[in-house]
Structure formats: structure tokens, C-alpha cells
Measured scan of single mutants.
Amino acid sequence: KVLVLALYDYQEKSPREVTMKKGDILTLLNSTNKDWWKVEVNGRQGFVPAAYVKVL
């Protein structure tokens, strides 16, 4: 399983997205889209901007 680090806070803007806080460790589920990556955080799955996270 691939983990990513949240570099910035992100507030979800649609039901398909998830909120994350800077420093959160998320599970990367899909990174085929260069702009939006699907992650799991706190038991929820959704998209975050790829530029806001870094693969650990």
C-alpha cells in the first residue's frame, strides 16, 4: 500500500472529494489522473489535488 503526506490543508468542495489537514498520512488508491488522486483518509475515500500531497 502506498502512503502520501498532505502538504497543505484541503477542504472538500464536492461529495467526491475528501478533507485533509497538513501532515495527515493518507492511503493512495489511484494516481492515474495527474491532477486529482484518489485517497483514503479517516475511513473515507475521495479525491484530493495531486499537487497537495507527496508520496512517502
Rank of each mutant, 00 (worst) to 15 (best):
G23C: 07
T32E: 15
N33V: 06
L56V: 08
V53T: 05
I25G: 02
G43Q: 10
P15F: 09
F47P: 01
I25R: 06
K54Y: 15
V53P: 00
E12K: 15
D9W: 04
L29F: 05
L5F: 11
R16D: 14
K21S: 12
V4R: 01
T19R: 07
S31R: 10
D9N: 11
W36S: 03
K13F: 06
R16Q: 14
R16C: 13
V48K: 00
E40N: 06
G43R: 06
T27W: 11
S14I: 05
L7Q: 05
K1W: 08
S14W: 07
V41Q: 12
K38V: 13
D35W: 15
N33C: 08
N30P: 03
F47S: 03
K54A: 15
V2Y: 11
V4F: 05
P15C: 08
G46M: 05
K38I: 14
D24S: 08
L28W: 02
K34I: 11
I25E: 04
T32C: 10
I25C: 05
A6G: 03
T19F: 05
N33Y: 09
V53M: 06
N42H: 12
E12L: 08
G43E: 07
N33M: 10
L56W: 11
T32V: 10
K54N: 08
R44I: 09
Q11W: 15
V48E: 00
R44G: 04
K38Q: 15
L28Y: 02
V53Y: 01
Y10W: 13
F47R: 04
S14V: 05
Y8T: 10
F47C: 08
E17K: 04
E17R: 04
A50C: 06
V55E: 07
M20L: 10
E12I: 07
K34Y: 09
V48S: 01
E17N: 06
K38W: 13
T32S: 12
K21W: 12
L7R: 05
V18K: 02
Q45K: 13
T19M: 04
P49F: 03
M20T: 03
L7E: 04
V41E: 04
G46A: 03
L3I: 08
K13M: 15
L28S: 02
T32A: 14
Y52Q: 05
W37H: 03
M20V: 12
L56F: 10
E17Y: 06
F47D: 04
Q11V: 15
K13A: 11
A50M: 06
T32W: 12
V2C: 09
V18D: 00
Y10A: 01
Y8P: 00
V48C: 04
A6Q: 00
A50T: 05
Y8I: 12
L3V: 11
M20I: 14
L26G: 12
V48D: 00
P49C: 03
L29K: 05
A6C: 08
T19K: 05
E12C: 09
E17A: 07
V48F: 01
E40L: 09
P49Y: 02
W37G: 00
N42F: 13
V39F: 01
L5N: 03
N42R: 11
V48Y: 00
A50V: 06
K1G: 10
K21E: 06
G46W: 03
L26Y: 13
V53W: 01
R16I: 15
D9L: 02
P15R: 08
W37K: 02
L56K: 04
K54C: 12
Q11H: 14
Y10V: 01
L28T: 01
W36H: 04
E40S: 08
Y52L: 11
P49N: 02
L28H: 01
G46S: 02
A50L: 02
L56I: 11
L5M: 15
V39W: 00
K38R: 14
V55C: 07
S14H: 10
S31L: 07
I25F: 06
A50S: 11
V53E: 00
V4I: 09
T32L: 11
V41Y: 14
Q45T: 15
Q11L: 11
F47K: 03
E17P: 04
V4G: 10
E12Y: 05
G23H: 06
N30D: 12
L3H: 10
Q11F: 13
N33E: 14
G23R: 03
L29N: 03
S31Q: 09
P15N: 12
Y52H: 06
F47M: 09
R16Y: 14
V2L: 13
S31D: 14
Y8N: 10
L5C: 06
G46I: 03
K34P: 11
E40P: 00
V55R: 08
V53A: 03
I25N: 03
T19A: 08
N42P: 08
K1Y: 15
N30M: 08
P15W: 12
K54R: 15
N30S: 14
V53D: 00
D9K: 03
R44C: 05
A51W: 10
G23I: 01
K22N: 05
E40D: 12
S14Y: 07
Y8E: 11
L26E: 00
Y10H: 05
S31C: 13
A6I: 02
S14R: 08
V2N: 08
N30H: 09
Q45I: 11
L5D: 01
A6M: 02
F47H: 06
D24G: 04
A50H: 04
W36A: 02
R16N: 15
K21N: 10
P49K: 04
G23F: 05
E12Q: 14
L29H: 06
K1I: 12
L56R: 03
Y52S: 07
Q45H: 10
V39Q: 00
L5K: 08
Y52M: 10
K34Q: 10
L28P: 01
Q45R: 12
Y52F: 12
L7T: 05
G23D: 07
V39Y: 00
N33Q: 12
G46Q: 02
V55A: 07
M20A: 02
N42I: 06
A6K: 01
K21F: 14
G43M: 08
L26P: 02
P49A: 02
Y8H: 14
K22E: 09
A6N: 01
K54P: 01
